[in-house]
Nucleic acid binder design. Structure first.
Lengths: 248, 248
DNA sequence: TGTACATCAGTGAACGCGCGTTCACTGATGTAC
DNA sequence: TGTACATCAGTGAACGCGCGTTCACTGATGTAC
C-alpha cells in the first residue's frame, strides 16, 4: 500500500533506471553535462535508443534527476556528518564537521559536485525541487549557528537575513523548524526569535559561500600544481567564520 | 617596426576577429560554452563557414582566446581598482577595493566570469598562458597582504604557502616582484622574506577563494529570490579575512 | 608609373557524424474473472 | 486452474538537424622591380 512493496516488473524498472543514471553520471564525469548522450547510453546499457524513453521523458528529465540525486545525496552526507557528533558538541565543532562532511563528499565525487555548483547548463532550467534539496543541505548549518553572537564584520549580512526572515514567513518557518525549536513554539511571530533566525540563516549562507569558494576552487582543479591542499584552505575559512560569529 | 603600425588589411583583419569574438561571447552569454557554434557565427558576421578558419585555427582556438581575454580584462579591472586608491591607503581598504573591483567586473559581465571560473569545458584544456593571467589577477592582492599579521585561524594556510614559496623559486620571485619590493633585493633567498612572501600569498589565495565563493554564488544566480545582495556577503567575507590577517 | 607576382580573404560543395525524438509495431508480462 | 485482455518493455526504421572541418578554387589586395 505504501508503494515500497513492488512486483518484479517495477523492481527491474528501477534497476534499469539506476543503470541509465550511472552511465549518464560517468559521461558527466568524463566530459561534463554536454557529454550526456542518450544514444550512447542506450548502446552501453544494451538497449535501442528509443527504449530509453520508457524510463525518462527526455534528456532534460534525465539531467534533472541527476541533479536532484546529487543534492539529496549531499544533504544526506552533511546530515550524517552532523549526526556523528555528540549532541552536546560545541557549535564550532559542529560547523567544522559539517564543512568537512560537505567537502569530503565533493572531493570524493567532483563531477556530482560540479553538477550542483557548476555553470548553469545551457537552455536547461533546474527542477523546482532543487530549492528544497538545497535547503536540506543548509539546514544542519542553521542549527550550528543558532544562538551565535555575530561580530561587526558579519553584522550587515545578519541584518539582511533578518529582514528576509521577517518578510518571508515561509522561510522563517523553515529556519525555526531546522534550528530544532519545538514545533509548538511560535518562533515565527516573536520578534526576538526572528533576530535569532536571522543570525542562524546568516551563518548558514556564509558557510555555504565559504564552501562554494574553497571546495569549488579545489574541485575544478585550480590548485593543481600549486602545492595547495584544499582542506587547509577550507579549515581556515571555517575558523574565521566561527570567529566572526563568536562560536565557542 | 613595433607592429603597432599596420596596414589597412591587418586592421580590417583585427576588426573582423573582434567581431567574431563578440558574437561568440554573446553565444556564451545565451547558452554557455557549448552554444558557441562556428556555423552560426559565420552566418551572423556575413561570411561563409570555412572563412572563419582564416581567423581562428579551430573552435577551441576561439574559445581559448575568449578565456584569455576574460582573464586579462579581469586583471586590468582589478589593477585599475588598486590604482584608484591613494598610495598610502591602509591595507584593509586596498583589499576592499580590490574585491569590489573584481566583483564589479564579474557582476557586469557574468558570462565572462563564468568563462574563467566555471566548470571546465568538456574535452577542452585551458591555454597555458591562463596561469600567467591568473597571476596578474592575484598580484594586486599580494601587495595588500604584504606585511600582514596573520591570526591563528589562517596560520595553517600561511604555513602551506610559505612552504610553497620555499620550494618553488619561480613563485617566490613572482611574489617578491608583486609585493613591490625593489628588483635588486634578494627577496628570494633571505629567510625572513620567504615568510613574508608566504603571508602575502596566503592572503591572496584566501581572498581569491572568498571571491570565488561569494561572486560565484551571486553570478550563477543562486541568490535569486533569496532577497540577498551578493555585495553584502562579499564585504562580510572580506572584513573577516582582513580581521584574520590583522589588517589595519 | 606600370607591370608581374605573391599574398591573402573568401566561396561553394561536400565530408561524415551523432544527436534527440517520433512512429507504428511486436512480444512478453502481469491482472481479472 | 485456465482463459481474455490490458499493460508494459522494447524494436527498427526514419525524421531532420546543425555541427566542425577539408578541399580546390576565385578574385581582390598588396609588394617588388
Amino acid at each position: 500500500m505504501a508503494g515500497s512493496q513492488q512486483g518484479p516488473r517495477a523492481r527491474y524498472r528501477e534497476q534499469t533506471r539506476a543503470e541509465i543514471k550511472d552511465i549518464a553520471l560517468r559521461q558527466v564525469a568524463e566530459g561534463g553535462t554536454a557529454a550526456v548522450a542518450l544514444t550512447r547510453i542506450a548502446k552501453e546499457v544494451g538497449l535501442s535508443g528509443p527504449a530509453l524513453y520508457r524510463y525518462f521523458d527526455s534528456r532534460d528529465a534525465l539531467l534533472s534527476d541527476l541533479i536532484r540525486d546529487a543534492y539529496a545525496d549531499l544533504a544526506t552526507a552533511v546530515t550524517a556528518a552532523a549526526g556523528d557528533l555528540p549532541s552536546d558538541a560545541p557549535a564550532r565543532e559542529r560547523v567544522r564537521a559539517l564543512a568537512a562532511g560537505c567537502r569530503g563528499w565533493a572531493v570524493a565525487q567532483p563531477h556530482r559536485y560540479l553538477l550542483i555548483q557548476g555553470t548553469p547548463v545551457p537552455g536547461y532550467s533546474a527542477p523546482p525541487d532543487t530549492l528544497e534539496s538545497a535547503r536540506a543541505v543548509l539546514a544542519p548549518f542553521l542549527g550550528a549557528f543558532h544562538g551565535a553572537r555575530p561580530g561587526p564584520a558579519v553584522r550587515p549580512v545578519v541584518a539582511q537575513t533578518t529582514a528576509w526572515v521577517r518578510a518571508d514567513p515561509e522561510v522563517a518557518g523553515w529556519v525555526a523548524r531546522s534550528t530544532g525549536g519545538a514545533d509548538g513554539e511560535p518562533a515565527t511571530s516573536a520578534g526576538m526569535d526572528e533576530e535569532a533566525a536571522g543570525v542562524a540563516l546568516a551563518g548558514a549562507v556564509l558557510a555555504w559561500s565559504h564552501l562554494h569558494g574553497a571546495v569549488g576552487l579545489e574541485v575544478s582543479g585550480q590548485f593543481d600544481g600549486m602545492g595547495h591542499d584544499g582542506g587547509t584552505l577550507l579549515t581556515a575559512q571555517v575558523e574565521s567564520l566561527a570567529d566572526a560569529f563568536g562560536l565557542d
